[in-house]
Lab assay of single mutants.
Amino acid sequence: GYDPNALYCICRQPHNNRFMICCDRCEEWFHGDCVGISEARGRLLERNGEDYICPNCTI
């Protein structure tokens, strides 16, 4: 089920109804503003069928 207190992202904070994006490599969720991806950019990636790779996986 959905846990509203689950911690995500590099900031280890809950979802808090903020835009989030999922890394296509590790499948962890990240707040867009923490990883520099706007909601519009996230939608563009999705539309173009491009993967989002998080900072942890791009090292």
Rank of each mutant, 00 (worst) to 15 (best):
P4F: 15
T58R: 15
R25K: 13
D51M: 03
P55C: 07
E27D: 10
Y2C: 11
E28A: 06
A40V: 06
D33S: 08
R25M: 09
D51Y: 14
E27M: 07
Y2L: 15
S38V: 12
E39R: 09
D24R: 14
R41S: 11
L45F: 03
A6L: 03
C57Y: 00
P4C: 12
D33F: 04
C57G: 00
H31W: 02
I10K: 08
N56Q: 06
N5H: 02
T58H: 12
P55S: 12
F30W: 03
D24Q: 00
E39L: 08
D3F: 11
H15D: 12
C23P: 03
I21H: 03
D24F: 07
A6E: 03
G36V: 05
F19Q: 12
I37S: 06
L44T: 08
D24C: 12
L44S: 11
P4Q: 09
G42T: 11
C57V: 00
Y2A: 09
I10T: 11
W29E: 15
P14R: 08
R25D: 09
L44W: 10
C23D: 02
Y8T: 15
P55G: 02
G42Y: 12
I53P: 02
R18V: 11
C22M: 13
G32K: 04
L7D: 02
C34N: 00
R41C: 12
D3N: 14
I37F: 07
I53S: 11
D51V: 02
R43K: 12
E46W: 04
W29M: 14
E46H: 01
L45N: 12
L44E: 14
L45P: 10
V35D: 03
G36M: 10
R12D: 07
L44K: 12
E27P: 10
E46L: 07
N5D: 10
Q13W: 03
R43W: 06
G42C: 12
F19N: 03
E39Q: 08
M20A: 03
C9S: 00
I59H: 06
A40S: 09
F30D: 01
F19P: 13
F19C: 05
D3M: 15
N56S: 13
C54L: 00
N56E: 10
G36N: 09
I53V: 09
C11R: 00
M20W: 03
Q13H: 05
C22G: 12
F30V: 03
Y52A: 08
R18A: 08
R47G: 13
Y8I: 14
N17Q: 14
D51K: 04
D24V: 15
G49V: 05
G42P: 06
R41F: 06
Q13K: 08
C22A: 13
P14A: 10
N56A: 09
G1M: 06
R12A: 06
P4M: 11
G42K: 15
N16G: 14
C23V: 00
I21T: 05
A6S: 02
E28V: 10
S38P: 10
C54G: 00
M20T: 12
F30T: 03
W29S: 14
I53A: 12
M20K: 09
G32R: 11
R25Q: 14
D3G: 04
C34M: 00
H31P: 00
C23N: 00
Y2H: 14
D3Q: 10
L44I: 04
F19E: 03
V35E: 02
M20V: 07
L44Q: 12
Y2F: 15
G1T: 15
G36I: 06
D33Y: 14
C9E: 01
C9F: 01
E27L: 07
G1S: 15
I21A: 06
N17E: 06
I53H: 07
C57A: 00
N17W: 03
C9P: 00
C34Q: 01
S38W: 07
E27R: 08
E27C: 04
E39H: 04
I10M: 11
A6Q: 07
R47M: 06
C54T: 01
Q13S: 06
C23I: 01
D24Y: 07
I10G: 04
C54A: 01
H15F: 02
L44V: 08
G1I: 14
T58N: 07
I21S: 03
C26E: 01
T58Q: 05
H31L: 01
D51I: 06
A6V: 08
A40N: 02
N16L: 08
L7M: 13
P55L: 10
D3Y: 10
P4N: 09
Q13T: 13
G32A: 12
N17T: 08
E46C: 14
Q13V: 08
R43C: 15
L45G: 08
C26D: 01
I59M: 11
R47K: 15
E46D: 03
E28L: 08
I37Q: 13
R12P: 02
G42A: 14
F19G: 04
A40M: 10
M20R: 08
P55E: 07
E39I: 04
F30I: 03
T58C: 15
E28Y: 06
R43H: 14
A40Q: 03
